[in-house]
Simulated assay, not measured.
Amino acid sequence: MSAFASLRPTLRQATTAASAARTFSSSAARAAARITITGRLAATPEAHATSTGQDIIRYAVASSYGSRENRKTSWFQIASFSEDKQREHLLSLPKGTLLYVEGDAKLKSYEDSEGRKQTGLNITQRYLEVLQRPYADSSAEQFDNSEYGSQ
């Protein structure tokens, strides 16, 4: 019996460690991987309707890395199901806007038009933050005080 008594502290630690495996996270476990992207908006976002009639906004973000002579750019296609004010805000963002995007990432396999098997990365936006708007040409946009009641 004394041999089992010496194992009890070890078994108790293993049980405690297993139950505390997700104590660092307040969110539920998900089947999708998370991705974080910081980059520039490649073009103005576009609204589309899915086959079920749900509105979806698609946009591309370019993220560059490496030194100037060895710079590489990765392009990410992102889908957003934002509604109301968030939807209008996203659709109003101009090309070149610096974004911080968090999303769910899933790999999807498909066959292209030539019958070759391809794999694509589907990213669904969960969070979006505008870090910097592109610099506007100062001669193209003038601030009009009359619209705000200034004299």
Rank of each mutant, 00 (worst) to 15 (best):
A3C: 08
R8G: 04
A14G: 03
A14C: 08
S19H: 11
A21K: 11
R22H: 12
T23W: 09
S26N: 11
S26D: 10
R34N: 07
R34M: 15
I37W: 01
T38G: 11
T38W: 01
G39F: 00
R40Q: 11
T44H: 12
A47V: 05
H48C: 04
T52C: 06
Q54C: 12
A60P: 00
V61F: 02
V61D: 00
S64M: 06
Y65I: 02
Y65M: 06
G66Y: 05
R71Q: 15
T73A: 08
S74G: 07
W75Q: 09
Q77C: 06
S80G: 05
F81I: 03
E83M: 12
E83Y: 06
K85Q: 15
E88D: 15
L93C: 08
K95S: 09
L98S: 07
L99E: 00
L99G: 00
Y100R: 02
G103F: 00
A105D: 03
A105G: 05
L107H: 10
S109R: 11
S109Q: 15
Y110G: 03
E111V: 12
S113W: 08
G115E: 04
R116F: 10
K117N: 10
Q118G: 02
L121M: 14
I123N: 00
Q125A: 13
Q125Y: 00
Q125T: 04
R126Q: 13
Y127G: 02
L128Y: 02
Y135N: 08
A136M: 12
A136E: 14
D137Y: 02
S138E: 15
S138A: 13
A140C: 05
D144Y: 08
N145D: 09
